[in-house]
């Protein structure tokens, strides 16, 4: 345990190593570490931002989906209403058409019947006249007895 010139040698070595470390070892390593820390911090911030964006987008998408659903429901509702309206209208129209056709039929039948009645009446009158002529065996002056004939026809 004696102090000697070794101390000076070690002191010089110590100073050299510290100097070398300060100049060529420490700055690049700590620089790399700090830069990487910065990078990681940036990355984390970016991912957080991305997460927030995603959340926002999800909310927006949900809203839009809801809106779209509501719209679709609206449209379907409208279409249904419109469909039933059309059906109603058509039914209405069909009914009125049918009634019209039936009424027409009835009136045609009525007209036919009246015509036939008239015809029959005329024929019956002619027959009556012919019968009366036979009965009287003389000619009836149609013109003179027309009032009688007319009365007969009316009675039929």
């Amino acid at each position: 345990m004696n102090i000697n010139a070794t101390l000076l040698g070690e002191l010089i070595a110590f100073i050299f190593f510290v100097w070398f470390c300060m100049k060529f070892v420490w700055p690049p390593i700590i620089g790399a570490i700090e830069e990487r820390q910065q990078k990681i911090a940036d990355g984390l911030a970016a991912s957080e931002r991305g997460e927030k964006d995603l959340e926002l987008a999800q909310v927006k998408a949900t809203d839009q989906l809801k809106e779209a659903k509501a719209q679709a429901a609206d449209i379907i509702e409208q279409a249904k209403k419109r469909g039933s309206a059309i059906v109603d209208e058509e039914t209405q129209r069909g009914h009125s058409e049918r009634e019209k056709i039936i009424a027409q039929g009835f009136s045609e039948i009525e007209a036919e019947r009246n015509r036939t009645k008239e015809e029959l009446r005329k024929q019956v009158a002619a027959l009556a006249v012919a019968g009366a002529e036979k009965i009287l065996e003389r000619e009836i002056d149609a013109a003179a007895q027309s009032d009688i004939v007319a009365k007969l026809v009316a009675e039929l």
Partner: peptide, 18 residues
């Protein structure tokens, strides 16, 4: 001492931030 500075220097020379 040289073991120290040279081994650490080898990292310092090609320190990557990746």
């Amino acid at each position: 001492g040289f073991v120290f500075i040279l081994s650490f220097r080898s990292v310092a020379k090609k320190a990557t931030t990746g």
